[in-house]
Protein backbone atom coordinates (compact mmCIF):
# COMPACT_ATOMS: atom_id res chain seq x y z
CA UNK A 1 0.00 0.00 0.00
CA UNK A 2 2.83 2.38 0.82
CA UNK A 3 4.50 1.61 -2.49
CA UNK A 4 1.24 2.18 -4.30
CA UNK A 5 0.57 5.54 -2.72
CA UNK A 6 4.22 6.58 -3.00
CA UNK A 7 4.22 5.85 -6.73
CA UNK A 8 1.01 7.77 -7.15
CA UNK A 9 2.33 10.72 -5.20
CA UNK A 10 5.42 10.78 -7.38
CA UNK A 11 3.28 10.87 -10.51
CA UNK A 12 1.12 13.67 -9.12
CA UNK A 13 4.13 15.66 -7.98
CA UNK A 14 5.66 15.34 -11.42
CA UNK A 15 2.37 16.26 -13.04
CA UNK A 16 2.15 19.37 -10.92
CA UNK A 17 5.64 20.44 -11.93
CA UNK A 18 4.85 19.80 -15.60
CA UNK A 19 1.58 21.70 -15.37
CA UNK A 20 3.17 24.70 -13.67
CA UNK A 21 6.01 24.66 -16.16
CA UNK A 22 3.59 24.59 -19.07
CA UNK A 23 1.66 27.40 -17.48
CA UNK A 24 4.86 29.39 -17.26
CA UNK A 25 6.19 28.40 -20.67
CA UNK A 26 3.21 28.82 -22.96
CA UNK A 27 2.88 32.61 -22.56
CA UNK A 28 6.57 32.88 -23.37
CA UNK A 29 6.08 30.91 -26.57
CA UNK A 30 3.57 33.44 -27.72
CA UNK A 31 4.70 34.83 -31.06
CA UNK A 32 5.92 38.40 -30.97
CA UNK A 33 6.39 40.55 -27.90
CA UNK A 34 3.80 39.46 -25.33
CA UNK A 35 3.88 42.78 -23.52
CA UNK A 36 3.29 44.76 -26.68
CA UNK A 37 0.49 42.43 -27.61
CA UNK A 38 -1.23 42.70 -24.30
CA UNK A 39 -0.93 46.46 -24.31
CA UNK A 40 -2.26 46.53 -27.85
CA UNK A 41 -5.15 44.27 -26.86
CA UNK A 42 -6.13 46.64 -24.08
CA UNK A 43 -6.79 49.15 -26.87
CA UNK A 44 -5.83 52.29 -24.94
CA UNK A 45 -4.82 55.39 -26.82
CA UNK A 46 -3.01 57.40 -24.16
CA UNK A 47 0.76 57.20 -24.67
CA UNK A 48 1.25 57.65 -20.94
CA UNK A 49 -1.05 54.77 -20.14
CA UNK A 50 0.71 52.60 -22.70
CA UNK A 51 4.10 53.41 -21.20
CA UNK A 52 2.98 52.64 -17.67
CA UNK A 53 1.21 49.48 -18.76
CA UNK A 54 4.28 48.30 -20.64
CA UNK A 55 6.39 48.94 -17.60
CA UNK A 56 3.89 47.20 -15.35
CA UNK A 57 3.82 44.08 -17.50
CA UNK A 58 7.61 44.05 -17.87
CA UNK A 59 7.95 44.21 -14.14
CA UNK A 60 5.27 41.69 -13.23
CA UNK A 61 6.50 39.19 -15.78
CA UNK A 62 10.05 39.96 -14.73
CA UNK A 63 10.98 39.77 -18.37
CA UNK A 64 14.25 41.60 -17.91
CA UNK A 65 15.68 38.71 -15.86
CA UNK A 66 17.36 35.62 -17.32
CA UNK A 67 14.94 32.79 -18.08
CA UNK A 68 15.95 30.44 -15.27
CA UNK A 69 15.47 33.24 -12.76
CA UNK A 70 12.04 34.04 -14.18
CA UNK A 71 11.15 30.40 -13.75
CA UNK A 72 12.32 30.26 -10.14
CA UNK A 73 10.53 33.51 -9.35
CA UNK A 74 7.37 32.06 -10.76
CA UNK A 75 7.58 29.12 -8.38
CA UNK A 76 8.41 31.35 -5.44
CA UNK A 77 5.39 33.54 -6.11
CA UNK A 78 3.26 30.44 -6.49
CA UNK A 79 4.17 29.17 -3.05
CA UNK A 80 3.35 32.53 -1.56
CA UNK A 81 -0.10 32.09 -3.07
CA UNK A 82 0.58 35.07 -5.28
CA UNK A 83 -1.02 34.50 -8.66
CA UNK A 84 -0.88 38.11 -9.73
CA UNK A 85 -3.53 40.75 -9.99
CA UNK A 86 -6.64 40.50 -12.07
CA UNK A 87 -6.76 43.03 -14.87
CA UNK A 88 -10.46 42.60 -15.37
CA UNK A 89 -11.40 43.05 -11.71
CA UNK A 90 -8.51 45.36 -10.89
CA UNK A 91 -7.17 45.53 -8.19
CA UNK A 92 -8.50 42.24 -6.80
CA UNK A 93 -5.79 39.57 -6.43
CA UNK A 94 -6.34 36.58 -8.73
CA UNK A 95 -6.26 34.08 -5.89
CA UNK A 96 -9.14 35.87 -4.16
CA UNK A 97 -11.24 36.06 -7.34
CA UNK A 98 -10.68 32.37 -7.97
CA UNK A 99 -11.42 31.35 -4.40
CA UNK A 100 -14.74 33.19 -4.57
CA UNK A 101 -15.74 31.22 -7.65
CA UNK A 102 -14.56 27.77 -6.52
CA UNK A 103 -17.56 26.95 -4.25
CA UNK A 104 -20.00 27.34 -7.15
CA UNK A 105 -18.06 24.99 -9.38
CA UNK A 106 -17.61 22.42 -6.62
CA UNK A 107 -21.26 22.82 -5.71
CA UNK A 108 -22.43 21.54 -9.05
CA UNK A 109 -19.54 19.19 -9.80
CA UNK A 110 -19.33 17.10 -6.67
CA UNK A 111 -23.04 16.19 -6.43
CA UNK A 112 -23.23 15.65 -10.18
CA UNK A 113 -20.20 13.35 -10.24
CA UNK A 114 -21.19 11.31 -7.20
CA UNK A 115 -24.85 10.96 -8.11
CA UNK A 116 -24.24 10.14 -11.75
CA UNK A 117 -21.66 7.58 -10.68
CA UNK A 118 -24.02 5.85 -8.25
CA UNK A 119 -27.14 6.06 -10.42
CA UNK A 120 -25.30 5.22 -13.64
CA UNK A 121 -23.71 2.17 -12.09
CA UNK A 122 -27.03 0.89 -10.80
CA UNK A 123 -28.78 1.45 -14.12
CA UNK A 124 -25.94 -0.25 -15.96
CA UNK A 125 -26.00 -3.21 -13.58
CA UNK A 126 -29.74 -3.58 -14.08
CA UNK A 127 -29.47 -3.28 -17.83
CA UNK A 128 -26.87 -6.02 -18.10
CA UNK A 129 -28.43 -9.30 -19.06
CA UNK A 130 -31.91 -7.89 -19.34
CA UNK A 131 -32.74 -7.78 -23.00
CA UNK A 132 -35.49 -5.20 -22.83
CA UNK A 133 -33.57 -2.74 -20.68
CA UNK A 134 -30.46 -3.40 -22.68
CA UNK A 135 -32.13 -2.54 -25.95
CA UNK A 136 -33.39 0.74 -24.53
CA UNK A 137 -30.63 1.74 -22.14
CA UNK A 138 -27.70 1.07 -24.42
CA UNK A 139 -28.57 3.27 -27.41
CA UNK A 140 -29.89 6.00 -25.11
CA UNK A 141 -26.71 5.77 -23.05
CA UNK A 142 -24.52 6.12 -26.11
CA UNK A 143 -26.45 9.09 -27.40
CA UNK A 144 -26.32 10.85 -24.03
CA UNK A 145 -22.57 10.29 -23.81
CA UNK A 146 -22.13 11.62 -27.32
CA UNK A 147 -23.89 14.87 -26.44
CA UNK A 148 -21.65 17.89 -26.18
CA UNK A 149 -21.91 19.19 -22.60
CA UNK A 150 -23.02 22.64 -23.62
CA UNK A 151 -25.69 21.39 -25.97
CA UNK A 152 -27.57 19.54 -23.26
CA UNK A 153 -27.14 22.59 -21.06
CA UNK A 154 -28.58 24.78 -23.82
CA UNK A 155 -31.52 22.41 -24.29
CA UNK A 156 -32.29 22.37 -20.56
CA UNK A 157 -31.96 26.12 -20.28
CA UNK A 158 -34.26 26.59 -23.23
CA UNK A 159 -36.80 23.94 -22.25
CA UNK A 160 -37.07 24.35 -18.48
CA UNK A 161 -35.85 27.89 -18.25
CA UNK A 162 -37.18 29.89 -21.16
CA UNK A 163 -40.07 27.82 -22.51
CA UNK A 164 -41.54 26.46 -19.27
CA UNK A 165 -40.11 29.10 -16.98
CA UNK A 166 -39.62 26.67 -14.10
CA UNK A 167 -36.06 27.66 -13.35
CA UNK A 168 -33.94 30.76 -13.80
CA UNK A 169 -31.45 30.43 -16.63
CA UNK A 170 -28.68 32.81 -15.64
CA UNK A 171 -26.53 33.59 -12.64
CA UNK A 172 -25.81 31.90 -9.34
CA UNK A 173 -28.52 33.84 -7.51
CA UNK A 174 -31.06 36.50 -8.33
CA UNK A 175 -29.44 39.76 -9.37
CA UNK A 176 -31.72 41.62 -6.99
CA UNK A 177 -30.53 39.71 -3.95
CA UNK A 178 -27.49 40.28 -1.78
CA UNK A 179 -25.66 37.12 -0.65
CA UNK A 180 -26.61 36.48 2.98
CA UNK A 181 -27.53 33.71 5.35
CA UNK A 182 -31.27 33.50 4.96
CA UNK A 183 -33.84 30.99 3.80
CA UNK A 184 -35.00 33.03 0.85
CA UNK A 185 -31.46 33.41 -0.40
CA UNK A 186 -30.70 29.71 0.07
CA UNK A 187 -33.84 28.82 -1.84
CA UNK A 188 -32.88 31.17 -4.63
CA UNK A 189 -29.40 29.68 -4.72
CA UNK A 190 -30.91 26.23 -4.99
CA UNK A 191 -33.20 27.23 -7.84
CA UNK A 192 -30.26 28.54 -9.84
CA UNK A 193 -28.28 25.42 -9.03
CA UNK A 194 -30.79 22.87 -10.36
CA UNK A 195 -30.28 23.21 -14.11
CA UNK A 196 -26.47 23.33 -14.24
CA UNK A 197 -26.35 20.37 -11.89
CA UNK A 198 -28.93 18.42 -13.87
CA UNK A 199 -27.12 19.05 -17.11
CA UNK A 200 -23.78 17.83 -15.82
CA UNK A 201 -25.42 14.89 -14.08
CA UNK A 202 -27.25 13.69 -17.19
CA UNK A 203 -24.27 13.83 -19.52
CA UNK A 204 -22.12 11.78 -17.16
CA UNK A 205 -24.86 9.26 -16.52
CA UNK A 206 -24.71 7.39 -19.84
CA UNK A 207 -21.01 6.66 -19.66
CA UNK A 208 -21.18 5.04 -16.23
CA UNK A 209 -24.22 2.96 -17.19
CA UNK A 210 -22.58 1.62 -20.35
CA UNK A 211 -19.30 0.91 -18.59
CA UNK A 212 -21.02 -0.93 -15.77
CA UNK A 213 -23.21 -2.94 -18.12
CA UNK A 214 -20.19 -4.18 -20.08
CA UNK A 215 -18.20 -4.95 -16.97
CA UNK A 216 -21.05 -6.87 -15.33
CA UNK A 217 -21.49 -8.99 -18.44
CA UNK A 218 -17.80 -9.73 -18.36
CA UNK A 219 -17.83 -10.54 -14.65
CA UNK A 220 -20.86 -12.82 -14.98
CA UNK A 221 -18.88 -14.91 -17.46
CA UNK A 222 -15.91 -15.31 -15.15
CA UNK A 223 -14.95 -18.48 -13.32
CA UNK A 224 -16.03 -17.38 -9.87
CA UNK A 225 -19.50 -16.49 -11.12
CA UNK A 226 -19.84 -19.86 -12.85
CA UNK A 227 -18.58 -21.62 -9.77
CA UNK A 228 -21.08 -19.82 -7.56
CA UNK A 229 -23.85 -20.70 -9.99
CA UNK A 230 -22.76 -24.32 -9.98
CA UNK A 231 -22.95 -24.31 -6.19
CA UNK A 232 -26.51 -23.20 -6.54
CA UNK A 233 -26.11 -19.71 -5.21
CA UNK A 234 -29.05 -17.42 -5.90
CA UNK A 235 -28.73 -15.15 -8.90
CA UNK A 236 -28.96 -12.05 -6.77
CA UNK A 237 -25.90 -13.02 -4.78
CA UNK A 238 -23.86 -13.68 -7.91
CA UNK A 239 -24.83 -10.33 -9.34
CA UNK A 240 -23.87 -8.66 -6.10
CA UNK A 241 -20.38 -10.10 -6.30
CA UNK A 242 -20.14 -9.18 -9.95
CA UNK A 243 -21.23 -5.64 -9.13
CA UNK A 244 -18.61 -5.22 -6.46
CA UNK A 245 -15.86 -6.45 -8.72
CA UNK A 246 -17.05 -4.35 -11.61
CA UNK A 247 -16.88 -1.24 -9.47
CA UNK A 248 -13.10 -1.26 -9.26
CA UNK A 249 -12.46 -0.41 -12.92
CA UNK A 250 -15.27 2.12 -12.69
CA UNK A 251 -13.49 3.92 -9.86
CA UNK A 252 -10.31 4.00 -11.94
CA UNK A 253 -12.44 5.33 -14.76
CA UNK A 254 -13.75 8.06 -12.49
CA UNK A 255 -10.21 9.28 -11.83
CA UNK A 256 -9.46 9.29 -15.53
CA UNK A 257 -12.66 11.11 -16.38
CA UNK A 258 -12.14 13.95 -13.93
CA UNK A 259 -10.43 16.20 -16.43
CA UNK A 260 -13.20 15.70 -18.98
CA UNK A 261 -15.98 16.26 -16.46
CA UNK A 262 -14.25 19.40 -15.33
CA UNK A 263 -14.12 20.67 -18.89
CA UNK A 264 -17.80 19.86 -19.08
CA UNK A 265 -18.51 21.78 -15.88
CA UNK A 266 -16.71 24.80 -17.28
CA UNK A 267 -18.79 24.97 -20.47
CA UNK A 268 -21.99 24.16 -18.59
CA UNK A 269 -21.39 27.12 -16.29
CA UNK A 270 -20.85 29.33 -19.30
CA UNK A 271 -24.25 28.40 -20.71
CA UNK A 272 -25.99 29.25 -17.45
CA UNK A 273 -23.76 32.23 -16.68
CA UNK A 274 -23.14 30.43 -13.39
CA UNK A 275 -20.57 32.33 -11.35
CA UNK A 276 -18.05 29.49 -11.08
CA UNK A 277 -14.65 28.87 -12.61
CA UNK A 278 -16.09 28.38 -16.09
CA UNK A 279 -17.51 31.84 -16.20
CA UNK A 280 -14.22 33.14 -14.84
CA UNK A 281 -12.37 31.45 -17.69
CA UNK A 282 -14.74 32.98 -20.21
CA UNK A 283 -14.51 36.46 -18.69
CA UNK A 284 -10.74 36.16 -18.51
CA UNK A 285 -10.58 35.24 -22.19
CA UNK A 286 -12.99 37.95 -23.26
CA UNK A 287 -11.22 40.60 -21.22
CA UNK A 288 -7.74 39.38 -22.12
CA UNK A 289 -7.05 38.93 -18.42
CA UNK A 290 -4.22 36.43 -18.69
CA UNK A 291 -3.26 36.44 -15.03
CA UNK A 292 -6.77 35.47 -14.12
CA UNK A 293 -6.89 32.80 -16.82
CA UNK A 294 -3.64 31.22 -15.70
CA UNK A 295 -4.53 31.43 -12.05
CA UNK A 296 -7.89 29.80 -12.63
CA UNK A 297 -6.40 27.01 -14.65
CA UNK A 298 -3.68 26.38 -12.12
CA UNK A 299 -6.36 26.00 -9.49
CA UNK A 300 -8.15 23.54 -11.71
CA UNK A 301 -5.01 21.46 -12.13
CA UNK A 302 -4.46 21.39 -8.38
CA UNK A 303 -8.09 20.41 -7.87
CA UNK A 304 -7.82 17.53 -10.29
CA UNK A 305 -4.65 16.29 -8.64
CA UNK A 306 -6.20 16.41 -5.18
CA UNK A 307 -9.31 14.63 -6.41
CA UNK A 308 -7.16 11.97 -8.03
CA UNK A 309 -5.37 11.44 -4.77
CA UNK A 310 -8.67 11.12 -2.90
CA UNK A 311 -9.84 8.52 -5.40
CA UNK A 312 -6.59 6.62 -4.91
CA UNK A 313 -7.21 6.49 -1.18
CA UNK A 314 -10.75 5.29 -1.80
CA UNK A 315 -9.27 2.65 -4.07
CA UNK A 316 -6.99 1.46 -1.31
CA UNK A 317 -10.02 1.16 0.94
CA UNK A 318 -12.14 -0.82 -1.51
CA UNK A 319 -9.49 -2.97 -3.17
CA UNK A 320 -7.64 -5.16 -0.68
CA UNK A 321 -5.04 -6.07 -3.29
CA UNK A 322 -3.52 -2.59 -3.15
CA UNK A 323 -3.16 -2.96 0.59
CA UNK A 324 -1.26 -6.21 0.41
CA UNK A 325 1.06 -4.93 -2.28
CA UNK A 326 -0.33 -7.09 -5.06
CA UNK A 327 -1.14 -5.61 -8.44
CA UNK A 328 -4.38 -3.82 -7.94
CA UNK A 329 -4.71 -0.21 -8.86
CA UNK A 330 -3.13 1.02 -12.01
CA UNK A 331 -0.21 3.31 -11.55
Amino acid sequence: MRGYLARKTLVYGLTFVVAVTLNWLIPRLMPGDPVQRMVARAAVQHPETIASMTEYYERTFGLDLPLWQQYLNYWAALFRGDLGTSVWLFPAPVSQVVLDAVPYTLGIMIPAILLSFVVGNSVGAMAARSRWLDNVALPVGYLITAMPYMWLAILLAWGFGVALGWFPVAGGYDFGLVPQWSWSFALDLLQHWVLPFLSLFLVSLGGWAIGMRNLIIYELESDYANYLAALGAPKRLIRQYAFRNAQLPQITGLALQLGTILGGALVTEIVFAYPGLGKLVLSAIQNQDFFLLQGTLLFVVIGVLVANFVIDIVYVLVDPRTRTGLTGGTA
Binding site: G207, I210, G211, Q250, T252, G253, L256, Q257
Partner: peptide, 8 residues
Protein backbone atom coordinates in the same frame (compact mmCIF):
# COMPACT_ATOMS: atom_id res chain seq x y z
CA UNK B 1 -16.55 -0.49 -21.82
CA UNK B 2 -14.18 2.29 -22.73
CA UNK B 3 -16.23 4.18 -25.12
CA UNK B 4 -16.56 7.32 -23.15
CA UNK B 5 -14.79 6.16 -20.06
CA UNK B 6 -11.25 5.29 -20.70
CA UNK B 7 -11.03 3.58 -17.36
CA UNK B 8 -12.04 0.01 -17.91
Amino acid sequence: ATQPITGP
